[in-house]
């Protein structure tokens, strides 16, 4: 049993688990509102409408893959922080699920709050889709999908009456 498990791990050790990714972005808004998730200070919040995700994971699934944890990350730098990474959306894809993911507009799961005012006018927010391969036994590689989308955020705040 142990030997079999080890062979299972060895047989997939050299896979790169890569796939092409297509991320589409509709309209984008930036607001400056109280961040109720932390200190209620006013912080920049970006809202991305019609965020589309397309990836074919069937080539990533092999016999030593139990689950793929898909996550969409926004990455940018701001005056306060050299690097910010915010996961906007994630999805658990099991072996028996549809392995071709094509969602025209994902339901955002997490608020895209900055740590201060780093989103307004930020012209270089990179959206990437990555995945964490969960094997039956073996390594837990994290892979960034091939292809990313850069978003230019507007330089004026959208009107907001203090709420999101």
């Amino acid at each position: 049993m142990a030997v079999l498990t080890f062979m299972c791990f060895l047989s997939t050790y050299y896979n790169d688990d890569l796939a092409d990714v297509n991320i589409k972005v509709g309209s984008v808004q930036v607001k400056n509102v109280a961040d109720f998730t932390t200190t209620r200070e006013r912080k920049d919040l970006a809202i991305i409408n019609n965020l589309g995700v397309k990836v074919d994971l069937s080539q990533v699934f092999n016999w030593n893959v139990k689950e793929i944890f898909l996550y969409l990350t926004a990455e940018y730098s701001s005056d306060v922080n050299a690097l910010n990474q915010v996961v906007l959306w994630d999805k658990i894809v099991m072996r028996e699920d549809a392995q071709r993911i094509d969602i025209p507009s994902v339901d955002p799961e997490y608020y895209f709050f900055d740590d201060s005012k780093g989103l307004i006018g930020n012209e270089n927010v990179t959206l990437t889709l990555s995945w964490n391969v969960i094997p039956n036994a073996g390594r837990l590689p994290r892979v960034q999908g091939l292809g990313s989308t850069t978003v230019k955020l507007p330089s004026t705040y959208a009107h907001s009456s203090g709420r999101i």
Partner: peptide, 19 residues
Amino acid sequence: VIKLHEKEDGTTKFLTKGD
């Protein structure tokens, strides 16, 4: 880890969540 802020000097703060 679902959210991370890293300063110029490498100090990080981050937020976690169970899948």
